[in-house]
């Protein structure tokens, strides 16, 4: 049985159009009219222990709402969730011992306290022996390089420093599952890299199951082994990252700079994506024509000064998936 099992999960929000004033809000209390938003609309999936799953989708797709139901914050409108044998919203406290959560735009550290003090408090909340927490703090400080700022109040930390501290806070009690809702939002390249390296290590050596939502395709490419895409509350794609890449054929792009370009006929299955002066971009399906073959054909007709080969990036594929859904 999978570690996380979700079946026909739904969440409706009722959105009131309140026009302010006490009478109106009292009315809103008793007569719940208003529009219904199907934030999560009948989704099912299973996640095994040790998986690293990217949970993707455009803004408002229902990612955060799903995470909130998985973590026991929200009670589903209907459907089942079982996480490690527990129904999160029913056994909220039991479930919480098993999970770590980071919401990229929120903080679980006490704003006025240095992270180290927050960690000690969290250790007490999770009822862990202080010896164990001490060791864990040292371990995470080392890995996430928190030494320099672990003793300054959280309000004085930069976004990147804070995010590293958040990760440590979520992992103090050694949870089996880690939920990350946009953990790299607003971070620079270096900070992103250090967080990604840490997460990879966590997944590989500790076998922590990680579920990540992000709008950064770099995260997906570098981290996730499986991708679930949702839109308007429904799952529109669920596969390994390789299958995702190949979904629109095994596309690659060859970039060529000619000394002097003279027209020639391209092989089948090759299209010119764009050209800037003497620089041409060809897209081809590597299942149908191999790169060396294409290069040979080009060299038969022209002399070139430069050449490079790139895989189609995940971003492009995801864009196509979002777009495909919209136009259906």
């Amino acid at each position: 049985m999978p570690l996380i099992r979700v079946e026909n999960l739904k969440k409706e929000f009722r959105v009131h159009k309140t026009s302010g004033g006490m009478m109106n809000s009292v009315k809103g209390l008793f007569f719940s009219r208003g529009e219904v938003v199907n934030a999560v609309d009948d989704i099912s999936f299973g996640i095994e222990k040790g998986e690293f799953v990217g949970y993707l989708g455009p803004n408002g797709a229902g990612k955060s709402t799903s995470i909130k139901m998985l973590t026991g914050i929200l009670v589903p409108t209907s459907g089942d969730i079982v996480v490690g044998g527990i129904t999160p919203y029913r056994d909220r406290k039991l479930n919480s011992k098993n999970i770590g959560v980071v919401f990229g735009q929120r903080t679980q550290l006490w704003w006025d306290l240095p992270p180290i003090d927050s960690y000690k408090l969290l250790g007490k909340i999770y009822r862990r022996p202080s010896k164990e927490i001490q060791l864990k703090i040292e371990f995470l400080t080392e890995l996430l390089e928190l030494q320099e700022f672990i003793k300054s109040p959280v309000r004085k930390l930069s976004l990147g420093q804070k995010m590293r501290c958040e990760l440590a806070a979520a992992l103090l009690h050694s949870p089996e599952i880690l939920y990350l809702d946009e953990p790299t939002i607003g971070l620079d390249v270096v900070a992103k890299d250090s967080i990604r390296a840490f997460l990879t290590r966590l997944n590989e050596t500790e076998k922590t199951t990680i579920i990540l939502t992000t709008h950064d395709m770099g995260d997906v490419e570098k981290l996730c082994k499986r991708v679930i895409v949702i839109d308007s509350g429904k799952i529109i794609h669920d596969s390994s990252i390789e299958r995702l890449r190949n979904r629109f054929g095994n596309h690659r792009v060859l970039e060529v700079e000619y000394d002097e370009f003279s027209e020639f006929s391209l092989p089948e299955n090759v299209t010119t994506v764009k050209n800037i002066g003497n620089r041409f971009f060809y897209q081809f399906d590597s299942d149908k024509i191999k790169a060396p073959e294409l290069i040979k054909r080009i060299l038969e007709h022209n002399s070139i000064s430069d050449l490079s080969l790139v895989d189609v990036d995940i971003e492009e594929v995801i864009r196509k998936i979002y777009h495909e859904k919209r136009t259906v």
């Binding site: 914050i73 406290k93 011992k97 929120r106 903080t107 909340i125 009822r127």
Partner: peptide, 18 residues
């Protein structure tokens, strides 16, 4: 509104005690 209550609910403690 500032999301603090979400944080409370993911801790093994009763919200009032927290």
């Amino acid at each position: 509104r500032n999301g603090e209550f979400d944080q409370v609910l993911i801790k093994p403690i009763s919200p009032l005690l927290f």
